[in-house]
Write a protein that binds this DNA or RNA. Sequence first.
RNA 1: GGGCGAUUAGCUCAGUUGGUUAGAGCGUCUGCUUUACACGCAGGAUGUCGCAGGUUCGAGUCCUGCAUCGCCCACCA
Length: 913
Amino acid sequence: MEVYFTRQFFRIKMSDIPKAYEPSAVEDKWYKTWLESGCFKARPDADPKNAYSIVIPPPNVTGVLTMGHVLNNTIQDILIRRARQMGKNAVWIPGTDHAGVATQSKVDAALRKEGTSARELGRDKFIERAKAWRDKHGGIIIEQLKKLGASCDWDRLVHTLDDSYSKAVLTAFVKLFKEGYIYRGKRMVNWCPVNLTALSDEEVIMKPQKSKLYKMRYELADKRGTFLEISTTRPETIMGDTAVAVNPNDPRYADLIGSFALRPFPQARIPIIGDEYVDMKFGTGVLKVTPAHDPADFEIGLRHNLPVIDVMNPDGTMNELAGPEFCGKDRFVARELAVKKLDEMGQLVSVEDYENNVGFSERGGVPIEPRLSDQWFMRYPKIAEAKQAVESGAIKFWPQRWEKTYVHWLDNIRDWCISRQIWWGHRIPVWYRKGVANPDINNPEEVYVGVDAPSDPENWIQDEDSLDTWASSWLWPFATQGWPDKAEMDRLQMSAFYPTSDLVTGPDIIFFWVARMIMAGLEFLPGDMADRIPFKNVYFTGIIRDMQGRKMSKSLGNSPDPLEIIAKYGADGLRFGVMNCAPQGQDILFDESRVELGRNFCNKLWNACRFRQMNGGLGDNSSAEKIIGRIDSSKLDPDDHAILSSLSKCAAKVDSDYASYQFNSITQGVYSFFWNDFCGWYLEVSKARLSDASQKETVLAVQDLCIRQILLLLHPFTPFITEELWHLMGYGRDGEFIQNVNPSFVETLKGCGLSVDESAAAQINALKDFAVKARSLKAQCGKANSKDSKFSLVPANPAARALFETSSDKLKKLVGAECLETVDAPLDAPVALSELGAVYLDITKTDSGAEIARLEKEREKLSAAIESAKSRLSNADFVSKAPQKVIDGAKRQLDDCQAKLDEVLKLLRTFGK
RNA sequence: GGGCGAUUAGCUCAGUUGGUUAGAGCGUCUGCUUUACACGCAGGAUGUCGCAGGUUCGAGUCCUGCAUCGCCCACCA
């Protein structure tokens, strides 16, 4: 393959490659190559039992990438890439959503600018315009996802308004209608006066508002001069009052029930009724009843057969029923006017500041208006089973706590208003026979319901409404896989890929989408519950916020553009940085410094490979077996064993972290291993060993093995740089992609018969401790940068002496010493205590004060540890009840610290302390 | 009104079945062009783990109560 460097090319070029990793060319090159090589496609002939699938939460087709998308899609990409590495037949199904109300209102706005309107254009022309809008602004987000590295099978891209998807939506509607789950009725709905459509309860956002509570008085019709005091927050609906209600158990008013009050304007006699809904303790205990403008009042109206007087137009202005003074005025203007009028009439008692919750339209941004209108509703199917699916663990939530929210919603579920008075969406597949005044929905002569239009369309008129966008996206996991078309389902291997494996989404759409998808899957697919559920795991991400904890939003301008970040730091850096700071299900306060961490990490990785290359030509790196074959086990020293042991642990931790979806733990574990253990220690100690010809090949092979493994572990997180280095380092046999290589490490070692001495880590820790103490000593003596220091060690024991002596070359380089020696007696020189023994820096003492302070600090720490261990060990309960492991640990702590303390005290005595 | 989450270093956060002397990144201070990396290296400083009780041999971790912040649900006008 020509697209990437061959190994030969690499040999020539590697030393010329830049010191700093430059992501952009690498990323574009590999994305293109992956696409051309079909890396993101499922394998048609693979075992269905080995399948792994994800459906993308479809972004708004005209949207742009946000940090939320970055988090969400990076997680999905990690999962799908990991699945490929594990040899699964993996597919990530992408798609976009038509976003009904959101898109329609944008197109409306564009039309207004041109001085026209949707109404003026008519339905067909409007839809043409909306399609043009979608095609112009659509698809940007798909290109952006590609920049991020998302490895979706783009040939399977689905849009909710595609013909095949639309067919699925209509099929589902017709089926539910026939089963009686869908009905039409005149109900109180949430009405958005801006978008002129009904909304579902979920699209209403409750916001606390500083409003006013108006206390006013209504005169008794048959007892003029006597008044009832009533409180309201909405005096503009007085004109729609058709009763006054009191609680029948309220002694203050019970005798008034059955009499009449006078509505102030337009003046009218309205009955005083008794209804237990009225809270005696609230306000005066008297409620004005406006059935057309309040859901609770509507219910009261039904109970008492009250007339319904709607005094508003759909756009929130008052209509003629409100009277000539109010007609045409906006509801909020009308409110002020009504108050003024009440005051003039002497019927306003008081105005108080009042905080209450007001429902706002999610898209329109204005208070919704409860409005009585003809709408389509859905009684949800499979509610009980949907609950059971999650409670039984057939579907698992990560983190689990969202189960409670989910179950609570299902327990209190109410019918779903699925009709929208907009044109951009799936038009309701219901036709009414022309000329029938009040068509009976259950009479096929009068109402036709079907996926296809009636065969004699000239005799029918189709319902004007469209479906709620969520009433199409709730079918996503199977409507993207060809359902209900059998041939398409086969072509797309739905039997292998449904149920999907993992769903990754935000908890903000748990009701909108997740719960509904579960019900849809259970309702529309055949088989046992396990076959019908849409996914087996749901991972709920946190929400990305800014450093002040505010949600990212366009209006606040606090949402960074992921594309700019990618341009600056690389997609891998962004991915790594975001994943590193995203613990499971917790909100994230995002800052660019997170990405800097990721960028720096990639750069470190790059340079570790450069360093490896500079130290000698690559041997056969084409497989782990080949690399291990280059190792001469007799040349392995404790450092080799320690790094391989540490890498094994790191790899095992990665495995278990995947199993519990702990992505931040993976990045942290790999970061720490790679940066500290591998670069910080192993590569440094390698430097001395590389000049020893007898060790060099083994050391380089161990390096190659480690780097190979790190690349494999990192690949799902940072796909671009790992693919680049995979090939540059010659790991890809015959150009094989890293995504197809199994990342298990422990098995690899076992399979190759390389046994790792797990005890070596302790020796290495002692050497590290020596290095830290020696450097610290130098720094404190102002010799941090001298390369010709001389250190003398009084070894703590013979093993320490042996280790120190065999490691002398490495240590010299590490601590910047010209000479390291062991001595038997303390010197009169600056000293520190290391695990290997007392270490002396061979210079004339200049500042014993600092040294005494350091030793005294050490003494305090050790004494505290000793006290703690002693008190535990002298506690009979501890000794009898604690597990042996813990008791042994305490004993060891005591012995170790005691020995060190003895040394420290001895040293302090040489200072006369 | 109900439910959920958070509270650990100056900042942002890890710390998953309770177990040695509580960690990371960033920031900060000191010093470094050390034959990979200044997107780096070495060294240093910084914590009554929100508060109060309780369980336990042992609590950042479990229980109870409280406080503060945030989110979700809920038709008191």
